[in-house]
Write a protein that binds this DNA or RNA. Structure first.
Lengths: 186, 186
DNA sequence: ATTACTGTACCGTCTGGACGGTAATGTCAA
DNA sequence: TTGACATTACCGTCCAGACGGTACAGTAAT
């Protein structure tokens, strides 16, 4: 779907994401995005004929990128647990990136919650795969939910966790996803 | 701060929350809120002189209500673990209510992320109390994060968890928060 | 007289989006 | 080789509508 143009289209997407982060989710106007991307409004509308199309583009871009990163980390020797490990470390790592998580989500949500449907479906399937390959379903679920919680905290800009606590959780999550016997703990 | 008027003020708050849920976070206009609350726009602005005041009202109302429910469930025999137990069961229960979580959060976020600062601070203090009274800090953190994750899923309208999985998580979380020795599991 | 509104009219700003250009590049037949 | 047309990738302007907020006159209960 997405071509190999490094230029305007992807610059617009990046500008939209950055703007949602910096200016607040409700300030994501086409004018502002165009200005930030160094494109005229007409130019923006050429690539994304409506604001809805921009949002869809953001969503699809996010899913594609996440999927690619996950696939790159796992390679089809897919041992079930390997996927979980990749997911955990990828998610944890993405939390600390300079453009942390998908803050444009709020903009999409504000525009219309339905835009997130593809994301939800993608995550649903992912969780399915994660659970299918896990020795302890409840533990896997807990790990998934905890990561979701970490993302949520970050997304809402809260500063609830101390660095030590965050490290402890990271270590716990990573160790959980690597254990082989799943019966001898502590 | 909030008085004992059962009438317009609280009706407006309820209408705003309902509208954010039904019409989408971005459709929360003063006109729409006034109409839904059965109040004229002038009347709305009498109680909340600006949209910002409305948002602040929503936030304060939420915190006050949550705090009251938590206090009601725990009574100052505060055994540390008792608070965690109350928090877990209260959170789990609130997930299944007909007006599930605070969906107006997205509206506040869209308006200005700073509106959520009081919420974040409240949660931060709560987490501190939760962790202070816990035997196993990492476990407590995991429980908190998992609940956060559950809320996040609900908030984003995703349908990722099957009923069985949700039940398993509920049971696990509840059992975790009730255990006394914290060493014999399974 | 004060409180708690209702109702109407209005204003300035912002926003999505439609629209009409236009310059550069490519395609293709004569 | 050249002229005719098509496509791509934009630019800049304009507009109708929505929105937050103001102003103010009126009303009904306390």
């Amino acid at each position: 779907m997405s071509g190999n143009r490094p230029s305007s289209r992807s610059r617009i997407l990046a500008a939209a994401a950055a703007l949602a982060r910096d200016a607040g989710p409700g300030r994501l106007s086409l004018d502002a995005v165009a200005a930030r991307a160094g494109v005229s409004k007409g130019g923006l509308l050429y690539h994304f004929p409506s604001k809805a199309a921009l949002m869809t583009g953001l969503v699809e871009n996010y899913i594609a990128e996440f999927e690619a990163r996950l696939d790159a980390a796992v390679t089809p020797d897919d041992s079930g647990e390997a996927l979980m490990k990749a997911y955990v470390s990828l998610s944890l790592k993405s939390l600390d990136e300079k453009h942390p998580p998908a803050s444009w989500i709020f903009s999409a949500m504000a525009e219309d919650p339905d835009f997130l449907q593809p994301v939800n479906e993608f995550r649903r399937k992912l969780l399915q795969r994660l659970l299918a390959g896990s020795a302890d379903r409840t533990k896997a679920l807990m790990a998934y939910l905890a990561i979701e919680g970490l993302h949520s905290l970050k997304l809402f800009g809260s500063d609830q966790l101390s660095g030590d606590d965050r490290n402890a959780i990271d270590a716990y999550l990573l160790s959980q996803s690597t254990e082989i016997p799943a019966a001898l703990r502590e």
